Amino acid sequence: MTTATVTSKGQVTIPADVRQALRVEAGDRIEFVQVEPGRFEVVASTRPVTELKGMFPKPARPVSVEAMNAAIQARGASAR
């Protein structure tokens, strides 16, 4: 298990083996994604958004803006 220490300023040095595995270098950005309460994943966010093109297939049928808005509204109402 690789560990690191948090400084008084809240900074952490990412160990070299973790940086290599994530393929991050000085100046790159990372994200902390909460996967459950008290548990996070560290994700390198170094790739440009254009690399996402083609990652997902086109939907079988198009979805209208109205249908998207209705789904968002329904989900928002159920979250309250």
Score class of each variant (00 low, 15 high):
residue 23 R to N: 14
residue 39 R to S: 09
residue 3 T to F: 11
residue 22 L to W: 00
residue 36 E to Y: 09
residue 9 K to N: 07
residue 37 P to W: 04
residue 38 G to S: 06
residue 29 R to A: 13
residue 22 L to Y: 00
residue 45 S to K: 04
residue 55 M to F: 10
residue 24 V to M: 03
residue 53 K to Y: 09
residue 3 T to V: 10
residue 63 V to L: 12
residue 63 V to R: 14
residue 18 V to R: 03
residue 14 I to S: 01
residue 61 R to E: 13
residue 47 R to F: 07
residue 5 T to F: 05
residue 63 V to N: 07
residue 3 T to R: 10
residue 19 R to M: 02
residue 62 P to V: 11
residue 37 P to T: 14
residue 29 R to E: 11
residue 24 V to N: 03
residue 72 I to A: 14
residue 4 A to N: 05
residue 80 R to Q: 13
residue 17 D to R: 06
residue 10 G to V: 04
residue 45 S to P: 00
residue 70 A to G: 04
residue 22 L to K: 00
residue 19 R to V: 00
residue 68 M to G: 03
residue 58 K to Y: 07
residue 80 R to C: 01
residue 34 Q to Y: 04
residue 34 Q to D: 10
residue 19 R to N: 03
residue 9 K to E: 09
residue 25 E to L: 06
residue 5 T to G: 01
residue 51 E to A: 12
residue 26 A to K: 07
residue 7 T to S: 15
residue 30 I to R: 02
residue 44 A to H: 05
residue 67 A to Q: 15
residue 12 V to L: 15
residue 23 R to L: 06
residue 44 A to G: 09
residue 41 E to I: 07
residue 46 T to W: 02
residue 32 F to I: 09
residue 57 P to K: 08
residue 77 A to M: 08
residue 9 K to W: 00
residue 9 K to M: 00
residue 6 V to D: 01
residue 47 R to I: 05
residue 11 Q to I: 05
residue 58 K to E: 14
residue 76 G to W: 11
residue 73 Q to K: 15
residue 16 A to P: 04
residue 5 T to K: 12
residue 76 G to S: 15
residue 71 A to M: 11
residue 63 V to D: 02
residue 17 D to T: 08
residue 38 G to N: 06
residue 21 A to M: 06
residue 56 F to M: 13
residue 14 I to Q: 00
residue 2 T to N: 09
residue 76 G to K: 15
residue 4 A to I: 02
residue 67 A to L: 10
residue 39 R to Y: 10
residue 41 E to V: 10
residue 31 E to F: 08
residue 52 L to Q: 12
residue 54 G to P: 08
residue 5 T to C: 01
residue 14 I to P: 03
residue 42 V to G: 02
residue 27 G to A: 03
residue 46 T to L: 04
residue 80 R to I: 05
residue 17 D to H: 04
residue 59 P to L: 06
residue 25 E to T: 12
residue 37 P to M: 04
residue 50 T to K: 12
residue 78 S to K: 14
residue 62 P to R: 13
residue 28 D to I: 02
residue 44 A to P: 15
residue 42 V to R: 04
residue 31 E to D: 14
residue 77 A to T: 12
residue 68 M to S: 05
residue 71 A to E: 14
residue 5 T to P: 00
residue 15 P to D: 08
residue 18 V to C: 03
residue 1 M to C: 05
residue 40 F to S: 07
residue 6 V to L: 10
residue 32 F to E: 07
residue 22 L to D: 02
residue 22 L to A: 01
residue 8 S to Y: 05
residue 74 A to Q: 15
residue 26 A to T: 08
residue 27 G to S: 04
residue 51 E to I: 09
residue 51 E to F: 09
residue 65 V to K: 08
residue 4 A to P: 02
residue 76 G to D: 15
residue 70 A to P: 07
residue 50 T to C: 04
residue 75 R to D: 12
residue 47 R to E: 15
residue 52 L to M: 15
residue 16 A to F: 00
residue 78 S to F: 02
residue 47 R to T: 11
residue 51 E to Q: 14
